[in-house]
Amino acid sequence: MLSRLLIVLMMAGVCYKAQAQKSLPQNMVNVKGGTFVPLYGDENGPVEVQSFLLDAYPVTNAEYAAFLEKNPKWNKGEVKKIFADENYLRHWANGQNIGPDAGKISNSPVVNVSWFAAKAYCECQGKRLPTVAEWEYTALASETKANAANDDKFYQRSLDWYSQPNPKYLPPVQQGFRNYYGAYGMIGLVWEWTQDFNSALLIGESRSDASLDRQLFCGSGSSGAKDVKNYVAFMRYAFRSSLKANYTVGNLGFRCAQSKKNASIKPAKRPAI
């Protein structure tokens, strides 16, 4: 417990900017709460998501560079290995310097950042990473519908993106499609870190995952059958499950969230197993 506390202190300690946000922050959108049925979870039936604020765009390289200026401990080459693997900011030149590709990518999502780094960034904005439930709930939305789960075209578009290898240069964040809530590029830009990314307990072995799933969903087999067709959600959960908190990946970025003032902050749940 002491070491855990120390890690938290260290991470919080490096944050330069700690001014709590008082009014609705810029470039955030209001995601009105509701319920949805996640692909994997530790409860039967729908999960409730409280209303919350979410960044309209994933964090860009330029924004991340600005964060490093004030928090040089997270510079490329200076970050502690326990907090980010050796590919941290692999696409940057060095330190706080995006390098020769800056012209092309400064407005594109920052990638090759670890969960620790993403979390530190959000905290320095007075924010936090969204939970898996919040992220999945928001990602259900198409341009026009809050829940486009049954929209075949939207589904196929998502599936197409998940099937394509990364482009050489990621597009600017504004080029992502704007969904019902006003959030851009939830699908189609980059994978995104979430606060509790590793709570689904997938081991990546698809057939075993299925039996784990049955255990988790004991007594809810009928709803499970429909979810088995949701390949895009499978892929997101599979991706998250392949990660560890110090991993950095070339198409994995993040955006920050913020609880609403009047919402009660529930402690993160422990995974069922």
Binding site: M1, S3, R4, L5, I7, V8, L9, M11, A12, G13, C15, A18, Q19, A20, I82, W115, F116, E123, R128, Q195, D196, N198, S199, K244, A245, N246, I265, P267, A268, K269, R270, P271
Partner: peptide
Amino acid sequence: PIHNAVVMAALAIYSAGILSSCSTQT
């Protein structure tokens, strides 16, 4: 004091489970 507030907030949000699982994985 603001730093301390942030620390406490972080503690509240990231209660035991998450951080412990991360350090185990590392």
